[in-house]
Amino acid sequence: MSDVEEQQKNREFKTDDDFDTEFFKRIENRSNIMKCIQCGTCTASCESGRWTALKTRSIVRKVVLGDLSVLDDPDIWLCTTCYQCYERCPRDVKPTDVIMELRNYATKRGNISPNHRAVVGYLKNFGHAVPINDEVRKRRVELGLEELPPTAFKYKQEGDDKDLKKIEKYMFDLPPVKEEKKGEEK
């Protein structure tokens, strides 16, 4: 679909079929989300939103409506979880928690953002979100430390430990990148 076509599509009427209110019923504190008055305090409070496209309020709105496109929205990955909106929300909607849960759902659908995927990859491969480089390794040895800091992966070679394998499976085996975007999982 070209950009023009997509824009035109967006302007058409949406019907009830475009929304899936059931999907978000599983979100914790749903009753809190439902009482959102769309005052915009969250967006205005958002430290990240001043520099990025994050619109916390519209994310919450989409959840209230049941608009599944929010799971494909790259914006949900822009939240720094500073909890500013959470603190200031006059109705205790807990927007940060909502975003975190949305991320979980999105991850299950393979919609994880490339940056986050990369971080997971680092964790999987090096046991650290920020991989350790040769310089640091050298320094550590000089300082009399072990070459690798003690992470689970230091013991990766002892691989028979089934628990570690299990955790590895849950934590790092992300769903593959999804090709088809429209909601099929209900």
């Binding site: 005052c39 915009g40 305090t41 969250c42 205005a44 200031r88």
Partner: peptide, 19 residues
């Protein structure tokens, strides 16, 4: 929109409402 905060420019002393 409900303003999230009022900030003050420390140099000029001007107030800004963020909303």
């Amino acid at each position: 929109g409900r303003p999230s905060e009022i900030v003050r420019d420390p140099i000029s002393g001007n107030l800004k409402v963020i909303v």
